[in-house]
């Protein structure tokens, strides 16, 4: 989706910017503001901060535009740069201080207002991603941001696909153990007896 935004316009705009046309950068911001803000949002789940981080990423892109070697697509370069910015921003000022164990337990299947309850439950799971250990959090964030494309997530992180796959599996495993009720949502409660919380967390 993201890569399809523009394959031709980006290099043209980059050339114009490098030739001294500052205004040409607006095209780049216009095209990529959505993906970058959404990516930042997945890193921090705070709209204001997501926009600040995305803005910082654009500024770094502006400064380092000459560093795009055109071996990879512009989007790959931009996402990798943005991931670095977001990572270091969150290292400086972490978003959540709670551990995965302390993440709120979503409500069980609701009978009334089921849609709302499901929404809240889903949001809790999404927020729990931020409580994952750093090495597992980023692969999970980027895998789903890139619409479940391991290769794209690996390119953005600058890691081998195998490493990303392994970390992703571990991250999902931690989430699954943290929220045993997810098993119940998808299957009838036959063999999936939820383990006691403490046992699951260890």
């Amino acid at each position: 989706m993201h890569a399809a935004i523009s394959a031709e316009e980006d290099p043209a705009d980059v050339n114009r910017v490098l030739a001294g046309d500052v205004q040409a950068f607006e095209g780049i911001v216009r095209r990529w503001q959505g993906p970058l803000v959404n990516m930042a949002w997945r890193y921090c789940r705070d709209r204001g901060r997501a926009e600040e981080m995305a803005q910082e990423a654009f500024l770094r892109a502006w400064r380092g535009l000459a560093g795009w070697r055109r071996e990879s697509s512009f989007s790959t370069w931009l996402f990798a740069l943005a991931a670095n910015v977001f990572r270091s921003e969150l290292q400086r000022f972490p978003t959540v201080n709670v551990s995965l164990e302390e993440a709120a337990e979503p409500a069980g299947p609701a009978t009334q207002h089921e849609g709302l309850a499901r929404k809240q439950s889903d949001e809790t799971v999404r927020r729990a991603v931020l409580a994952l250990p750093t090495r597992y959090r980023e692969p999970v964030v980027l895998y789903y941001f890139h619409e479940m494309d391991v290769a794209a997530a690996a390119r953005t992180m600058g890691l081998p696909e195998g490493t990303v796959k392994a970390r992703l599996a571990r991250g999902r495993d931690l989430l699954r153990k943290r929220f045993p009720h997810l098993n119940e949502q998808s299957t009838p409660p036959l063999s999936s007896t939820p383990r006691p919380k403490k046992e699951v967390l260890q």
């Binding site: 926009e51 789903y144 997810l182």
Partner: peptide, 29 residues
């Protein structure tokens, strides 16, 4: 359970940048 996690994490709503984002970014640039 993985399918449920996939469904939840993939089905993230699209966040629209605020109207002043482009202008603010270009001002900084």
């Amino acid at each position: 359970a993985n399918d449920v996690i996939d469904r939840i994490l993939e089905a993230e709503g699209e966040l629209i940048p605020s109207s002043g984002f482009l202008a603010a970014t270009m001002e900084r640039v």
